[in-house]
Each structure stands twice: as structure tokens, then as C-alpha cells.
Simulated scan of single mutants.
Amino acid sequence: KYGGADQQTFLEMLDKAIKENPTATIYIKTHTDVINGYKQGFITNNLNNNSVILFSDDINPISLLKHVNKVYVVTSHMGFEALLLGKEVITFGLPWYAGWGLTDDRHKNIKSLKHNNRRTEATITELFAASYILYCQYINPNTGKKGTIFDVINYLIKIKKLNNKLRGSVN
């Protein structure tokens, strides 16, 4: 709703993806909220094309994005993750990262954002800084007090190393 989209928007996105990539296999990643029953999916019940594969498992988006060239989204944050990986991104809704000159924006209202001076051109580095450094507030996982993105990153690195060290198998 707040992304300026409805069921028709999702169906249009799928139709465009198929028509604009006639020889490609189209992979659809079901949103985590749909998988967990918090939202209704619009595309899962409308698949009738052999070149379309549905991923309904809760997988890491980066592991999927590494294998594609182009990403079609309505408002999904996966589009921003795709931009970070240098992928071409086509938007059909109004995600926060649309309208900055980095995406192919198909929503009819995106032009009004640009004409009202709400959007100018930005680099992916500027959008990353704005969203992950300037906008977000972090809590230092070690102290529970206000922290930075680097506190969280360092904590995750430490936890991953510990998990890998403790990982084992039953013979």
C-alpha cells in the first residue's frame, strides 16, 4: 500500500520480466513476510509459465543475487541489496532507493518525486551512507549502549568466527 502498489503491480512486474527476458529463466523469491504468514503473496498463485521458478524457502538474498543479472522488484529491499552488488534493478513500486538515478523506475508517480525536488542523482555509496550510517541507530551488542554500524559488524564477525570454531559433526 505505502509503496504505491497492489496485486496488479506484481503481475505487471512478472509480465514485464518475462517479456523483456524471453530466453531467461525467471526466479521469484517469495518475501519472508509471505513465507511466515504475515502478508499475502500476489504472484505465487499466478504462476503458469515453465520459465518461472519460485523460491519459497527462507534463503539469504545475497546467495541468490550472486547468480542473476537483473532484478525486478516492487518495493523489496532486495533491490537495494542487488544495487550494492552492481546488478541492474527495475522497480515497479516506490521503494526508498528508487528515483535517485540508480534504478529503472516504472512506477507512474516516480517522476513527481523528481520534479518536486525530493530526489536528485545519488551514488550507491551515498545511498548506503544515508541508509546504513546516517539514518539507522545502532546499539553496541557488547555494552547495550548507543553504538555504530562498525560495532555491530565487528560483533557479527566475532560471533561467526566463534560459531565456525565450535561447529562440528556427529560421526
Score class of each variant (00 low, 15 high):
Glu121Pro: 00
Leu94Val: 11
Ile59Glu: 05
Asn46Tyr: 09
His115Pro: 00
Lys87Thr: 09
Lys70Asp: 06
Val71Thr: 10
Lys39Arg: 13
Ile110Arg: 02
Phe80Leu: 13
Phe42Asp: 13
Thr120Trp: 00
Leu83Tyr: 02
Leu47Glu: 05
Lys29Asn: 07
Ala98Glu: 09
Lys66Ser: 05
Gly3Asn: 08
Asp6Asn: 15
Met78Thr: 15
Gln8His: 09
Pro22Trp: 04
Ile18Asp: 04
Val68Glu: 03
Ile28Trp: 01
Gly41Asp: 08
Leu65Tyr: 02
Ser51Glu: 10
Thr75Ser: 15
Gly3Leu: 08
Ala82Gly: 07
Asp33Val: 03
Lys114Glu: 13
Thr32Tyr: 06
Glu126Leu: 00
Asn109Glu: 15
Glu20Met: 12
Arg119Met: 08
Asn50Thr: 10
Asp33Lys: 11
Ile90Gly: 01
Leu84Asp: 02
Ser63Trp: 02
Leu113Gln: 08
Val34Trp: 01
Asn48Leu: 07
Asp104Glu: 15
Gly41Trp: 05
Ile90Pro: 03
Thr9Ile: 10
Leu83Thr: 02
Asn116Arg: 15
Leu65Cys: 11
Thr25Gly: 06
Ala98Thr: 13
Asp15Phe: 04
Asn46Ala: 14
Val74His: 07
Asp33Cys: 01
Leu102Lys: 13
Val34Tyr: 00
Asp58Met: 08
Gly101Ala: 14
Leu127Glu: 04
Phe92Gly: 04
Lys29Phe: 01
Pro61Leu: 05
Ile53Tyr: 12
Leu84Phe: 05
Val89Phe: 02
Leu65Met: 11
Asp57Cys: 06
Tyr72Pro: 01
Gly99Asn: 10
Asp104Asn: 14
Ala122Cys: 06
Val74Ile: 15
Val89Gln: 00
Arg106Trp: 10
Asn36His: 08
His115Arg: 10
Glu81Phe: 01
Lys29Leu: 10
Asp104Gly: 02
Gly93Thr: 05
Ala17Glu: 02
Lys87Met: 07
Asn45Lys: 13
Asp33His: 06
Thr23Trp: 01
Phe55Trp: 06
Pro61Thr: 05
Pro95Ile: 09
Asn45Tyr: 03
Tyr27Gln: 11
Asp57Thr: 12
Ser56Glu: 14
Ala122Lys: 15
Thr23Gly: 06
Thr44Val: 11
Ala17His: 01
Arg118Cys: 11
